[in-house]
């Protein structure tokens, strides 16, 4: 049974969960990806393995943390080790199926910027940088980007490529020696994929209660558009209940 009452962020978390298959290994950062991966594990993917870059596997937190550095999100982990162990011997080794990524801005080819806004050679504002994001973008078998749907965040080209998507399209990513690549971009208005040849972003579906005009008006570039445009599958009542009652009861990530 589909839910009637849900927020755009809850829909994004559910769409993220649907990208994960049972038995896979997912590299996850804090925020919506945590909600998405815990939701998948409690529903269709009980054998999902969840990795945090600093060296934490399959935690079962009972309190919401402020970030990966918060021991709240390490609670009841099966492994506590290191960057070399997780990002090295699992991710770089080629065992991570899915990596979740977010950022300040992404572009028509799924390149992500978490470093700076402005002119990299002149005036700019510096933000966070890579952390493990560039490593995940380079070595995961596939990545899923979760980002807010705003024209300043969805641009024809980003001002700094922190984490490569398909670079300028075609086979540029393969030529750079990188594994995998982005397969989905989930926003609060739509879901996108990438054209298999040109690697340009392609609209896959628009969320319920949204119009194609609204989706396009809030983007800095025009994606490829199918005809007709499908509507995103809404969350189920059970998925929303799990998010609100068990995974993020304080509403830190999804409200």
């Amino acid at each position: 049974m589909y839910a009637e009452d849900y927020t755009p962020f809850e829909l994004m978390a559910v769409a993220g969960a649907r990208e994960l298959k049972d038995g896979e290994i997912a590299a996850v950062g804090i925020g919506l990806p945590v909600v998405a991966s815990f939701l998948a594990k409690r529903t269709h993917a009980p054998h999902l393995t969840i990795l945090f870059e600093l060296g934490v596997v399959d935690p079962e937190p009972i309190h919401t943390g402020v970030g990966l550095a918060d021991p709240r999100v390490w609670y009841r982990a099966k492994v506590m080790s290191s960057f070399v162990d997780m990002l090295g011997m699992v991710l770089h080794r080629g065992l991570v199926d899915v990596g979740f990524l977010g950022g300040l801005e992404t572009d028509a080819y799924g390149n992500l910027n978490t470093t700076l806004l402005g002119d990299p050679h002149g005036q700019f504002t510096h933000f966070v940088g890579s952390g493990g994001a560039n490593d995940i973008a380079s070595s995961a078998k596939r990545t899923v980007i979760i980002i807010r749907h705003e024209a300043r965040k969805l641009k024809e080209a980003v001002s700094f490529v922190t984490s490569p998507g398909y670079l300028r399209g075609g086979n540029e990513r393969e030529a750079a020696g990188l594994r995998g690549g982005p397969v989905r971009v989930i926003t609060d208005k739509a879901i996108f994929g990438f054209d298999p040849q040109t690697r340009r972003m392609r609209l896959e579906s628009i969320h319920p209660h949204t119009t194609l005009e609204d989706v396009l008006a809030n983007m800095g570039f025009r994606p490829l558009i199918p005809d007709p445009v499908p509507v995103t599958e809404p969350p189920t009542v059970e998925q929303i209940r799990l998010i609100r009652e068990e995974i993020d009861p304080e509403g830190i990530y999804v409200r």
């Binding site: 470093t115 990299p120 560039n134 490593d135 380079s138 490529v161 922190t162 670079l167 750079a176 594994r179």
Partner: peptide, 13 residues
């Protein structure tokens, strides 16, 4: 050797 950084502006910088 490492796979990370290639193709990025991190490496260019």
């Amino acid at each position: 050797p490492i796979r990370s950084l290639r193709g990025s502006d991190i490496l260019a910088r």
